[in-house]
Structure formats: structure tokens, C-alpha cells
Simulated scan of single mutants.
Amino acid sequence: MDELVRWLGVQLDADKARAAQWHDLECSIHEHQEGGLLKAVAALEVYGEVPGAVCDCGGPARVLREIDAGRQLLALHLPTPYQDEGDRWPGCTTCSWRDEMDDLQVRYPCKTVRLLALPYADRPGYREEWRP
């Protein structure tokens, strides 16, 4: 199941590369006050072609922070470095525990790792068995 972690790393790398080239005005939808009403509008409707205009959605900086947070979460949820005799998959270093019968609970990938991959479910290579 480390294939999921490798695949997710590729998705995060792709997002990071895209975000590095993304201009704030390429955001598609923003909230904008108009006549006291909050409405969603396209960024260029709000800012037009104003040179140097920057939207307030956070744009690429927010995406880069999300990618960093995802990588940090993945680092906390690694497969255990050992497998028990007869166990087919390892547990998660954060989520797994042993019950009173000394059986491993929470196999890897844990729900946290599966949830981190879920936003990318529409991308090539995602497997339905990874769905939480």
C-alpha cells in the first residue's frame, strides 16, 4: 500500500509545480461585496486588467501551505517499520495499536492517509480501494 503514498507524493509535487507558476488572478471564483451583498464572481470581473492586482483568496501561497501540511501529515502516518509474522500489511505508526489479543488494529494506509488522497480521486492512477 506504499503505492498510495508514492502516488500522493506525485500529486502534491504536481500541485506545487502548478502553484509556483500560478498568478493570483487565475483563481476562478472569489467573494465580492457589491451593494452590501456578498456574491461569487470571476476574479477578472472584480479586478479587470489592473496590473499588479492581487486577489485576497491566498492563491498560490495558500496552496503551497496546504501541500506542506499534507506532507507533514504523511510524515506522521508512515507504515510501521516491521510486519508481524503472517501479517500481510504493516500498521500505521500513529494510528495503529494492539488489542488485548495482541492483534494489530488499523492497517496501513490508515484513514488519515486515505483522506489526504481523496481530493485527488479524479486524477489518473487513483484506485477505488484507497477510498476511505
Rank of each mutant, 00 (worst) to 15 (best):
G86T: 07
V63A: 10
P79R: 03
Q21M: 10
D68G: 12
C55M: 04
G36F: 06
E49Y: 12
L76G: 10
G48M: 02
R65Q: 15
L12V: 07
C95Q: 03
C92I: 03
A53V: 06
K111F: 05
R71C: 03
Y82D: 11
L116F: 06
Q33T: 10
G59V: 07
G48R: 11
K39C: 09
H77D: 00
L78I: 03
D84F: 14
W130Q: 05
A20Y: 02
A19H: 03
G70D: 09
D84L: 15
R127M: 03
A17W: 04
K111C: 11
V10E: 13
Q33E: 15
E66C: 07
H77K: 07
G48E: 05
L76P: 00
G125Y: 08
G48P: 05
Q105A: 02
S96W: 01
C95E: 09
S28E: 15
A43D: 10
R107L: 13
E45M: 05
L44A: 12
C95V: 02
A19P: 04
E100P: 00
P109T: 05
E66P: 00
A40D: 13
R123A: 06
P81N: 07
L78P: 00
W22M: 14
E100I: 10
E66T: 09
A61T: 11
A69P: 01
A61V: 11
A20C: 05
W97H: 15
C57A: 04
Y126M: 02
L78N: 04
L25C: 08
P51F: 02
Q21Y: 00
C57F: 01
D15K: 02
T94F: 09
L38G: 11
E31S: 09
Q33K: 12
A61I: 08
S96L: 01
V113S: 01
A14K: 11
E129R: 10
A53H: 07
W97N: 11
C110K: 03
A17G: 04
K16L: 14
R6L: 07
T80C: 05
D68S: 14
V46A: 12
L76Y: 06
V113H: 01
P132Y: 03
L115S: 12
H23T: 14
C110S: 06
W97T: 09
A61W: 07
W97D: 11
V54H: 12
G125C: 02
W22I: 05
L38F: 10
E26A: 09
D68V: 08
W7Q: 05
E85V: 13
E3V: 07
A40H: 15
G52R: 06
C95L: 03
E3M: 05
Y47D: 04
D68H: 12
A42C: 08
D2Y: 10
L8I: 02
C55L: 07
V5N: 08
A19D: 09
W130P: 01
G125L: 05
L12A: 03
P109M: 03
H30A: 09
D99H: 08
Q21I: 06
P109Q: 07
G48S: 05
E129Q: 11
L76D: 10
K39V: 14
G125W: 08
L118M: 12
R88Y: 09
I67V: 15
A43L: 07
L4S: 02
Q33A: 12
V46C: 10
M101R: 15
